[in-house]
Design a binder for these strands. Structure first.
Length: 706
RNA sequence: GGUCCGGUAGCUCAGCGGUUAGAGCAGGGGACUCAUAAUCCCUUGGUCGCAGGUUCGAAUCCUGCCCGGACUACCA
């Protein structure tokens, strides 16, 4: 009984190249799809580039070309990267397609018809110079609550307060530097709350979601009314104009998931299939693979849209975690933000496919790539034990081929065949880690078999020729069996094995019956050992790319250099060539890039902030606070200030007592949960870092910084 | 602060109520030489985070605590 399956991965955004973090998902999905196809199921893998939105519009503008040209180049680069990683789609489309526009219209009409759309005015900041409304991330300004300067548009990094960009004090557009103005525009909203009952039922029943995700939705969203979803954006916007609402465009997250269906539509037109058989049929399962960051869209909005428009609901949304490298978030400075192309320039894609497979389970956990583990797993498992099976026996039967009948192997082949069901179940459940463990246990037994039967001794005695052929027949069949089991993960190895034994691997059942009496081709190397130095070289490449990209970004004229995504990786970037000759330190530009310079200010602006040298005279932990230390600062002369500083993670209270720091002495007092904070200790660093500043010797508490 | 997940050999993990707790890798010893310094055999190594409880019996179930991670933040 074969199944029909429609499978998707999230659509990569056309604003940047594919990196190894993306590949967790595409490899996970590709393995699953290849597994289903190998099992004989009618399975199709659909994907597309996600092309709409403000970010694309802005970038195209910066690069001085049409959005269509930008997204075409990016899509070509994406498709090359996927193909080179053996990620094989049945169709790879674009959200900027006629099919998608038409389907968006169909969804929209149904949602209108169902009475889910309402119109409401939204006040938003507008950049008169750039001529566009500003999304949160394109505005910075002062926090309306604590007064911290140069904060992002949605929440304050100093006090954590949430607000809308309109609340910002002295907002500035990061696009043009202009002062934005508040403008009102009518937006269209979908009243998701009307679907509350359906969504509560759907998310909590059946096996549509991993248990932790169902639980998360229940706790985070379904316990209260669902908020209206703003699905329109006023012009100018790169996207599709809403037919019954001229001047308004569908928000990118409205048309992106519909792109799954649009891509299927393209495939149907090409192959003569009927879309309804795949998206409106109870006989077809729909499986989405996504990262945990877009859970919300795929588990609430998307099912709501599908339900309303009469399309199939997802059979399952498979959600995975993020990639970390060496236990840390990917970092451009550290060279661990590795592009697919940068990897391909140094390493074999099979390594990464296998490594990810050994790390992936059905849970949402993040997954870590450590260099040592990568090298150990690939070399020990793939080369030492797996490929070694073929490489140590194939040449003994190159002239004779396999024995006419499969010999007695002590039940090894039968036992490994019997393990097939358990391996298949592990693949089906996305527990690739388990599947890999099961396969490698079989490889161990096969090597022991070769060891016990010593083909290298048999070949010395011509009377043992038949025995030699039998032993190698068994060993190569055991190898082939594993190649079948691993074919979803290692398609290249499957192809090589098919060529070696003159029998292409196309079906899972090939693992259940041995080959006999067939010719054996000349053995050629199947997989090189990974060398640690290549990984380090790759990381070095990534650092250089990041440095070059930073340098390019800081000179407007160089923006064009980034415009050729395909060519970017093949050109060896000259790292920070622009560094001044006397600058032998050549510091990286990551910090500056992460937090660009604030708009110009006057000396008077600066004078408003009274920075003083202060001595920490007391420091204690605030047990209930996760980040805060309570400090008592002396400005000398008996003047003290109580300050709560968010540096608990970085400093021990005792080590602070007695030292000098710099504080903002005239900051308005603020009542916090644990008491009043009368100032602020300044520290360098972004994100999770904090480095206190110490004045040179001679500075006294109370000295002002000028 | 809350929610969820995890804490088992040096490392990555399996086991999730029942014989003396396992695998791979790493370490030690030996064998072999067909093979990409591969393979095979033997071996060192763990009061299964801590403390209680349930049970004839707990790594496995319950409670509390500690630690790590993810998510989220006047809050389910």
């Amino acid at each position: 009984m074969f199944r029909r399956l429609l499978v998707t991965s999230a659509l990569p955004y056309a604003n940047g190249p594919i990196h190894i973090g993306h590949l967790v998902e595409y490899i996970q999905t590709d393995v699953w799809v290849r597994f289903q196809k190998l099992r004989g199921n009618d399975c199709r893998y659909m994907c597309a580039d996600d092309t709409h939105g403000t970010a694309i519009m802005i970038r195209a503008r910066q690069e001085g070309r049409r959005e269509e040209d930008l997204i075409a180049d990016m899509q070509a680069a994406h498709e090359r990267d996927f193909a080179d990683f053996d990620v094989e789609f049945d169709n790879y489309g674009s959200t900027h397609s006629d099919e998608n526009r038409q389907l968006c219209g169909e969804f929209w009409a149904a949602i209108r018809q169902a009475g889910l759309v309402k119109e409401q005015a939204v006040e938003q900041l507008y950049d008169p110079q750039a001529g566009t409304f500003l999304a949160d991330r394109f505005v910075r300004g002062g926090c309306p609550k604590c007064g911290a300067k140069d904060q992002p548009g949605d929440n304050c990094s100093a006090c954590g307060h949430h607000y809308t960009p309109i609340d910002l004090v002295d907002p500035v557009s990061t696009l043009s530097g202009a002062k934005p103005e508040v403008r009102s525009a009518a937006h269209l909203f979908i009243e998701l709350e009307q679907l509350h009952g359906f969504l509560a039922e759907w998310t909590q029943s059946g096996d549509h979601l991993q248990p932790e995700i169902a639980n998360y939705l229940q706790g985070h969203f379904l316990g209260e009314p669902l908020r209206d979803w703003d699905v329109s954006r006023p012009a100018p916007y790169f996207g599709f104009e809403i037919p019954d609402s001229p001047g308004n465009y569908w928000y990118v997250w409205f048309d992106a998931p519909i792109g799954y269906i649009a891509s299927t539509q393209q495939w149907c037109r090409r192959t003569g299939a009927a879309l309804a058989d795949w998206w409106k049929s109870a006989d077809c399962e729909v499986h989405h693979f996504i990262g945990k960051d877009i859970t919300y869209f795929h588990t609430l909005f998307w099912p709501g849209m599908l339900k309303t428009a009469g399309f199939s609901l997802p059979t399952k949304v498979h959600i995975h975690g993020f990639l970390t490298v060496g236990g840390e978030k990917m970092s451009k400075t550290k060279g661990t933000f590795i592009r697919a192309r940068t990897y391909l320039d140094r390493l074999d894609p099979s390594y990464l496919r296998y490594f990810y497979a050994t790390k992936l389970t059905s849970r949402v956990d993040d997954l870590d790539l450590s260099i040592d583990e990568f090298v150990a797993k690939v070399n020990a498992d793939l080369v030492n034990k797996l490929v070694n099976l073929a490489s140590r026996t194939a040449k003994f039967v190159e002239k004779t081929g396999l024995s006419a009948r499969y010999p007695d192997d002590g039940g090894l082949f039968a036992a490994a065949a019997a393990a097939g069901d358990e391996i298949a179940a592990a693949y089906e459940a996305c527990d690739y880690n388990k599947a890999m463990r099961l396969v490698m246990a079989l490889a161990d037994r096969a090597n022991a078999y070769v060891e016990e039967n010593k083909p290298w001794e048999l070949r010395k005695d011509s009377s043992q020729a038949a025995r030699l052929q039998d032993v190698c027949t068994a060993a190569l069949n055991l190898f082939r069996q594993l190649a079948v089991y691993l074919a979803p993960v290692l398609p290249k190895l499957a192809r090589q094995t098919g060529a070696l034994l003159n029998d292409p691997i196309t079906r899972w059942e090939q693992s259940q019956a041995p080959l006999a009496g067939t010719p054996v081709a000349r053995f050629t190397h199947m997989l090189k050992r990974v060398e640690e130095k290549d990984l380090y070289a790759m990381i070095e490449d990534s650092k250089q790319e990041a440095a070059a990209a930073n340098a390019a970004a800081s000179t407007p004229a160089a923006a064009v250099a980034q415009a050729s995504p395909g060519g970017a990786s093949s050109v060896q970037p000259v790292a920070a060539a622009q560094a001044a000759p006397e600058d032998r330190w050549n510091d990286g530009g990551d910090a500056l890039a992460a937090e660009p310079l604030a708009p110009e200010c006057t000396i008077d602006d600066f004078a408003k902030v009274d920075l003083r040298v202060a001595r920490v005279v007391a420091a204690e932990e605030v047990p209930e606070a996760r980040k805060l230390l309570k400090l008592k600062l002396s400005l000398g002369g008996g003047v003290y200030k109580q300050v709560f500083a968010g540096i608990k993670a970085h400093y021990e209270p005792q080590q602070l007592v007695g030292r000098l720091v710099v504080c903002v002495a005239n900051l308005a007092p603020r009542t916090m949960k644990f008491g009043v904070s009368e100032g602020m200790v300044v520290a360098a660093g972004g994100g999770n870092e904090a480095f206190l500043l110490t004045p040179d010797a001679g500075a006294q508490p109370g000295h002002r910084l000028h």
